[in-house]
């Protein structure tokens, strides 16, 4: 139960930050998604995002900064395993499932459904 409450709180708070950016700046949703992935990546690199994942679980991995965290943490892991080449191979290895699934289901849904407007 605790895990669910923490996921709710952490995930909700990350979204609140996004909402503040939307309402108080003129950033579009596209800008905010990009910003959050980059921020998540940077926080991950300086070692601040993993603690958030430990606390919030899905509350930290489901929001987009979690995607940035996946990219950076798997890059670091790959650098530890295979050195220099890991800089370029790590990110996509870690995000392979996410990106492939997004493309496959994105395409499938686009074919199956029509926009309602």
């Amino acid at each position: 139960m605790q895990a669910y409450i923490m996921a709710f709180l952490v995930g909700g708070l990350i979204c609140v930050v996004g909402q503040l950016l939307m309402d108080l700046t003129s950033l579009t949703p596209a800008h905010i998604l990009v910003l959050f992935v980059v921020l998540g990546g940077i926080l991950s690199a300086v070692g601040l995002y993993q603690p958030l994942v430990d606390i919030g679980g899905a509350g930290a991995t489901v929001p987009l900064p979690g995607f940035g965290h996946t990219l950076v943490s798997s890059t670091f892991e790959e650098i530890n395993n295979s050195g220099f080449l890991g800089i370029f191979s790590g990110a996509l290895k870690g995000a392979a499932v996410g990106i492939t699934v997004a493309v496959v289901f994105g395409f499938t849904m686009a074919v199956l459904f029509n926009p309602k407007g």
């Binding site: 939307m22 579009t28 949703p29 926009p115 309602k116 407007g117």
Partner: peptide, 18 residues
């Protein structure tokens, strides 16, 4: 036309933008 204008000027209509 709302939807035709929306996709030209702004975002796809099914995008969950506020």
């Amino acid at each position: 036309h709302h939807d035709a204008a929306e996709r030209q000027y702004r975002f796809p209509t099914e995008l969950g933008a506020q």
